[in-house]
Amino acid sequence: MNLLEVKSVSKVYGSGETAVHALKNVSFSVPKGEFVAVVGESGSGKSTLLNMIGALDTPTTGKVFIDSRDIFGMAEKKLTVFRRRNIGFIFQNFNLIPELTVEQNMVFPVLLDYQKPNQKYLEELLEVLKLRERRHHLPGQLSGGQQQRVAIGRALITRPALILADEPTGNLDTQNSSEVIALLKEASRKYEQTIVMITHSRGIAQTADRILEVSDGVLTDFGRYDTREYDIRNHGAGEGGLSVIDLDAAGREA
């Protein structure tokens, strides 16, 4: 069953001569539990695509279905609640609330939903994210990788069906990048979450179950990485590989 379905989405900014076609008739679907990487040049439209999927921006034409629900058919209020419960966001610049501790940052979305955080689940997440020791630290006292792990925890806390990550490793060094990606993968397996991740890095993209490329607003589905088609077509054979990071079958660092 497809968790996410994007149907003929187009986005045009401006009009007339100055019109910019950020997305051109993009369609694809992602089954539940899949980890998808979206790659593309700067300005190719990949962020626009992510904004559409996250219901942060509305398409000019086309529809987006999450869990078979047309998200743009919902009223603003309903959409907010839907987003709150079903979509988790992870940002390049972490966007943590600097005044709050690790734990407080993580439970914040639950509080926005007027729920009580599930303490057991929180402990579990802290454990998985290796943040137990740091739970009472402020973001400023953490390394970049740790901060992004907090952000992941915040995205996971509501057990959303879909996690959208915009360059989650953009501000991290190699070591931290692999850790974060490993965690994302682990989470998606463990909690059966669908992840759509934007990235610049081919290495990172290769760890995904599937790669989509956006170029000039047009989407190409390269399917699963193991076909190696993406690399061969775009960069010649032998350039890709798993040299950047090395992950085992479970997505953990080797």
Partner: peptide
């Protein structure tokens, strides 16, 4: 504004 945008992203409604 970015902070509020982030709050909106992680599920805060306008009225919140």
């Amino acid at each position: 504004m970015q902070f509020f945008g982030m709050l909106r992203c992680i599920g805060a409604s306008r009225s919140q």
